[in-house]
């Protein structure tokens, strides 16, 4: 696999900016208004990230196990975010612009992951991820069959669509106080909210996907004597699958939105609660740490969970 000159530059810059960050962090003195920042955690996380990038490069380019375009995209992203961390480190941490209260330096933020390891990195993450997936799973197992049933005939579709459109727009956050009053625990209430938030996009997209299946295929199958079950399995579900998966992705994003919303407003555990609690007492380094961790989890589950399932379920599309 040959790289063009600009691609090679991007790949190298995307890799080398990260060790350069560590070098800067060790050699440059700290800003006068933020003396003696704890640097170990930031440096080690950047180091681990560098090693992952390096092994990805070796694996992808030298061993040729990955398509070239994907490697370049990853290195591009690494470069863009490397520049972001560079600016953050230099402007805030080393030059000391902006006030120390609302704008913590990356060194102090990353240190929170270690100093608050049990509450933030382990316990809050665990609780939040469990709630997100419980609600999302419930939405999948009710939204998809429901959408198929309502999308199957025109009459059901005409009724379900206007109702769904209105209900989907009502922000599920407003059900939260009610859910907390009705459900036995706050955790259940938040799972319910995640469920509602993820349900509507999944349901609406399944509804559309099933309703818009080319009628000719169904007619052909009927002429050839296929049973209703077979039509469903062989025609309706496969041809609605891209639309259904698009809805599942929106549902997953909304599940995380409602999870954090619910935890911020009502819960006593979880990442959203951690974020809100430390906002109220004014520890913005912990707030930023929680923001980064939530972003990481969302990115992680979408890239390494959803995208892979989608690539597997839609592999017939690539062949076409």
């Amino acid at each position: 696999m040959r790289l063009t000159k600009s691609e090679a530059v991007i790949a190298l810059a995307g890799l080398l900016i990260w060790p350069f960050l560590i070098l800067l962090n060790v050699t440059l003195p700290d800003a006068a208004n933020r003396p003696n920042q704890p640097k170990e955690v930031f440096n080690s996380i950047i180091m681990i990230f560098t090693l992952i990038l390096l092994s990805y490069l070796v694996f992808g380019i030298l061993l040729k196990k990955q398509p070239k375009a994907r490697v370049i995209t990853v290195m591009n992203a690494a470069l863009v975010f490397g520049v972001f961390f560079f600016l953050w480190l230099v402007v805030v941490g080393k030059i000391g612009k902006l006030n120390t209260h609302s704008f913590p330096s990356p060194n102090t933020v990353f240190d929170v992951f270690y100093s608050d390891f049990y509450f933030l990195t382990y316990k809050s993450s665990r609780d939040s991820i469990f709630r997100a997936f419980a609600g999302y799973f419930l939405a999948l197992i009710t939204g998809i069959p429901g959408g198929i049933w309502f999308g199957r005939t025109m009459r059901r579709f005409e009724v379900a669509y206007p109702l769904a459109k209105v209900t989907a727009h009502v922000p599920p956050v407003v059900y939260l106080p009610y859910a907390i009053a009705v459900f036995p625990s706050i955790s259940h209430a938040i799972i319910f909210m995640v469920y509602i938030g993820a349900f509507w996009p999944i349901f609406i997209n399944t509804l559309f996907g099933v309703y818009n299946v080319d009628r000719r295929y169904i007619e052909f199958a009927k002429i050839l004597g296929a049973s209703e079950k077979r039509i469903l399995r062989r025609i309706i579900i496969p041809s609605a699958m891209p639309t259904i998966l698009a809805g599942c992705l929106i549902g997953l994003v909304l599940a995380f939105v409602l999870l954090t919303a619910g935890e911020m407003v009502g819960a006593h555990t979880g990442l959203g609660f951690y974020l809100m609690y430390h906002t109220d007492i004014g520890y913005f380094d912990k707030v930023v740490a929680a923001i980064l961790l939530i972003s990481f989890w969302v990115f992680f589950w979408i890239t390494f969970g959803f995208d892979m399932v989608q690539a597997r379920l839609l592999r017939w599309m690539r062949r076409i």
Binding site: T73, G272, F284, I294
Partner: peptide, 19 residues
């Protein structure tokens, strides 16, 4: 655009509320 959007777009905007 794509490298930034792939990471930033799915981040729940709600977590920026307190900030």
């Amino acid at each position: 655009y794509y490298p930034v959007a792939k990471v930033v777009a799915p981040i729940p905007p709600i977590i920026l509320v307190p900030y």
